[in-house]
């Protein structure tokens, strides 16, 4: 019973976190085209900005990409929650010394959720790709990896490591 309560709390927090991250690439510096370089504390280029620069996106295209990513973050909220849950289950199973079969089942669940997540990323990339001009499209294939990393960054709330630092500073 207690475990169920905790799991529910985890899922609620995860989904809330995912929704929060969906507002344009996640984090206050997750979007593109604003605030970059405006603060000495926020000078590192985000993956989304890297993606935009790699493809030399125009301002409008950057906005479209932001929107596409935000929509994908919303669409993937449940999948990301599933991935987070599978991570907890996996670590718990190893600590508890569960059988190889049980661990494999969790691993299979993770694999399937990760594939669903990649499918959403690929769909998002297709949308962005379709909005590119021919000269931008020629090297676009290589940019998918950066977009996938941008998803990871956004899913982590725009800076997982930043949160870690903040947490430790408290």
């Amino acid at each position: 019973m207690f475990e169920k309560l905790l799991l529910m709390a985890l899922l609620a927090a995860t989904i809330a976190s995912a929704q929060r991250g969906g507002g344009g690439g996640g984090g206050r510096n997750g979007g593109m085209g604003e605030g970059m370089g405006s603060s000495m504390m926020e000078r590192r280029q985000s993956k989304l900005e890297l993606f935009a620069d790699k493809l030399k996106l125009s301002r409008e295209q950057r906005e479209e990409t932001n929107s596409a990513l935000a929509a994908a973050m919303e669409e993937s909220a449940q999948t990301r929650a599933d991935l987070d849950r599978a991570r907890v289950d996996y670590a718990s199973a190893l600590i508890d010394g569960k059988s190889a079969d049980e661990v494999k089942k969790i691993s299979d669940d993770y694999t399937s959720a990760a594939a669903r997540m990649t499918a959403i990323e690929a769909k998002t990339f297709s949308k962005v790709y379709a909005s590119l001009k021919p000269n931008q499209q020629s090297k676009a294939g290589q940019a998918f990896e950066v977009l996938a990393e941008a998803f990871e960054q956004a899913a982590a709330g725009g800076g997982r490591e930043g949160r870690e630092r903040g947490r430790q500073g408290r």
Partner: peptide, 27 residues
Amino acid sequence: CRLFLTGILASGFAFAQRGGGGDMGGG
């Protein structure tokens, strides 16, 4: 252990909600 891990992850996310937003790894 499972309870514990679930708890730590949940509280981690809750923390992220409060103080999160992150600085996009901005260091």
